[in-house]
Deep mutational scan, measured.
Amino acid sequence: MPSETPQAEVGPTGCPHRSGPHSAKGSLEKGSPEDKEAKEPLWIRPDAPSRCTWQLGRPASESPHHHTAPAKSPKILPDILKKIGDTPMVRINKIGKKFGLKCELLAKCEFFNAGGSVKDRISLRMIEDAERDGTLKPGDTIIEPTSGNTGIGLALAAAVRGYRCIIVMPEKMSSEKVDVLRALGAEIVRTPTNARFDSPESHVGVAWRLKNEIPNSHILDQYRNASNPLAHYDTTADEILQQCDGKLDMLVASVGTGGTITGIARKLKEKCPGCRIIGVDPEGSILAEPEELNQTEQTTYEVEGIGYDFIPTVLDRTVVDKWFKSNDEEAFTFARMLIAQEGLLCGGSAGSTVAVAVKAAQELQEGQRCVVILPDSVRNYMTKFLSDRWMLQKGFLKEEDLTEKKPWWWHLRVQELGLSAPLTVLPTITCGHTIEILREKGFDQAPVVDEAGVILGMVTLGNMLSSLLAGKVQPSDQVGKVIYKQFKQIRLTDTLGRLSHILEMDHFALVV
């Protein structure tokens, strides 16, 4: 994948999101292997301009796509893939009243899908469409860049269908997702969380590099694949309309690839034109409109599966009536509230959605109805927002919020430890010299600072030695090549209790 991002070429006709291997024109390309080798690009942008032909009021008969309808489940399912879809609609009884809503608040519980998330729908649909058009064949390999849930859905379907599955996901995604993927037989590649989507090191860039190296491999490409919004247009939206008897006044959905909100909203605009569509985008993402909503100094966020630093091709923002931004604290607070007060075992993005819903639905009156999409299960986040310690460490809970008995030293300040200034190293000294210094002084790690004293990161003896043994660096290389740029900081005025929580999850903390 090139470091400079080429513009994806656009073909003359058809839909841009065809499933299957992508040609340089962004659509299915038939021909000899030699032709494909000559024409197939190194990668295709996940934010390529959409060429979708959908228009409100256009006859369904003019759609270029294969459409399906929700099917009634048999008493005995032939395999677990038949437990994807037909998820329950559940009334939220307490939270709406707590925040003064007059309307009825309903939750579409997508964590009841077989793999635990709304992404099971698009995973199965992308595979079925690729099999139907002859792209996927027995023994082929599926590769997908994902925040985890699409990966789980694909790995689940691949396990049943017999495909090899490789999932490329950023490091910030939970260990629970990784464990589930491994249990399903998927191979996992992790990428830096802070890598831009168009960087060769991003999950998108690495996935395309693997595709170019592995024979008979395919990126189904949830960011561009029409099967993504079509899955929701054909099934999720129809289920909502049936469950609500066609009567709903507002739908609120958090947005990642945009397939969920695009597919549902398009069908609702056709069948229930008075329904307002509300999009939820986390602070630090750029999906919301108008652009002024996205202006923030924050560039990272903890909530998973929603928000991006690019506009995915499948996201149709014209069908969203209003956007709201959400933050991590309210997302996790509301997710825990949904679990504790409503018994809905949902993930953090569901918290984002409901946090926005109780604001947006203030305009609705008694007798009206708001539906929220709860995308995934708490299963993926047992060591994250479900953990009091994690919430404390991230600053989303305060010590006084917890009532468990603490040891005698818990409320003492870090400054009472009488710490001395640490050994520091410059980023320009060599790895070999740094190892000598650390061994001589008896230290395992040291902060790396520039000549102005600005902290650049941390270097550890173990990481340097393993990097040297693996051949990633040489003793003569500058130590700046092996620094940890993500590390926890703590102030002298913070409590030892807070430091204790940090050290339970990290090997060190830097006192500043």
Results as ranks from 00 to 15, higher is better:
119 K>G: 05
181 L>W: 05
4 E>T: 05
266 R>T: 10
232 H>S: 10
210 L>E: 01
258 G>I: 04
36 K>T: 07
20 G>E: 13
196 R>G: 09
169 M>S: 01
124 L>G: 06
235 T>R: 01
192 P>F: 07
262 T>V: 10
141 T>F: 14
236 T>R: 01
201 E>F: 11
223 Y>Q: 15
245 D>Q: 10
89 M>N: 01
123 S>A: 10
77 L>Q: 15
169 M>W: 07
114 A>Q: 11
214 I>A: 06
108 K>I: 01
237 A>V: 13
237 A>W: 01
87 T>G: 01
224 R>D: 04
68 T>E: 13
155 A>M: 09
131 E>A: 10
105 L>E: 01
220 L>Q: 04
146 T>I: 05
68 T>G: 14
25 K>V: 06
50 S>N: 10
79 D>G: 09
187 E>R: 01
36 K>Q: 13
196 R>A: 08
235 T>M: 10
57 G>S: 14
55 Q>P: 01
215 P>L: 05
8 A>C: 01
38 A>D: 09
102 K>V: 01
63 S>D: 09
172 K>I: 01
155 A>W: 01
159 A>L: 06
70 P>R: 08
108 K>F: 01
174 S>G: 05
152 I>V: 10
180 V>K: 01
153 G>F: 05
87 T>P: 11
14 G>D: 10
275 C>A: 15
208 W>G: 01
262 T>D: 03
75 K>V: 13
71 A>C: 01
154 L>A: 10
231 A>H: 15
35 D>R: 08
250 M>I: 08
122 I>C: 03
205 G>H: 05
105 L>N: 01
142 I>R: 05
269 K>I: 04
81 L>C: 15
133 D>S: 05
165 C>T: 04
181 L>F: 06
83 K>M: 07
197 F>G: 06
124 L>H: 09
211 K>D: 01
45 R>Y: 01
145 P>T: 05
46 P>I: 10
80 I>C: 15
32 S>T: 06
200 P>F: 07
12 P>W: 08
61 S>L: 07
224 R>P: 06
76 I>R: 03
157 A>C: 09
247 K>V: 04
15 C>S: 07
12 P>D: 05
276 R>L: 12
17 H>I: 15
46 P>K: 01
181 L>R: 01
217 S>P: 08
273 P>T: 04
271 K>R: 11
160 V>C: 15
209 R>G: 08
152 I>G: 04
20 G>V: 15
271 K>V: 09
115 G>V: 06
209 R>P: 01
144 E>W: 05
62 E>M: 13
124 L>S: 11
35 D>C: 04
216 N>M: 01
177 K>R: 03
108 K>G: 05
247 K>G: 08
151 G>A: 03
141 T>N: 08
34 E>C: 06
235 T>C: 12
90 V>A: 04
21 P>T: 10
276 R>E: 06
6 P>A: 08
91 R>W: 03
99 F>W: 10
149 N>G: 01
199 S>A: 05
45 R>S: 13
158 A>I: 05
262 T>W: 04
263 G>D: 01
254 S>P: 12
11 G>R: 14
231 A>T: 15
85 G>H: 10
159 A>R: 14
236 T>E: 04
259 G>I: 01
267 K>M: 10
138 P>W: 09
257 T>V: 03
177 K>A: 04
175 S>G: 06
142 I>W: 01
122 I>T: 06
142 I>E: 01
57 G>D: 10
188 I>C: 01
18 R>P: 05
58 R>H: 14
160 V>T: 01
10 V>L: 12
90 V>D: 06
150 T>L: 06
64 P>R: 06
25 K>R: 08
194 N>G: 01
260 T>M: 05
185 G>S: 05
214 I>T: 06
201 E>S: 12
175 S>M: 01
6 P>I: 01
58 R>V: 08
194 N>V: 01
220 L>D: 01
88 P>C: 08
234 D>Y: 11
234 D>M: 15
44 I>E: 15
44 I>Q: 12
154 L>F: 15
129 D>P: 01
274 G>F: 14
152 I>N: 07
21 P>V: 05
119 K>I: 04
77 L>T: 01
187 E>L: 07
180 V>S: 09
147 S>L: 01
142 I>T: 04
136 L>K: 01
229 P>A: 01
181 L>H: 06
137 K>S: 01
46 P>R: 01
220 L>C: 05
186 A>M: 06
213 E>L: 07
76 I>S: 09
120 D>G: 14
173 M>N: 01
275 C>Q: 04
25 K>F: 08
275 C>T: 01
87 T>Y: 01
275 C>P: 04
129 D>A: 15
86 D>G: 14
257 T>D: 01
135 T>V: 07
78 P>I: 06
31 G>C: 15
216 N>L: 05
162 G>Y: 10
171 E>M: 12
158 A>M: 08
198 D>C: 10
189 V>P: 11
16 P>G: 10
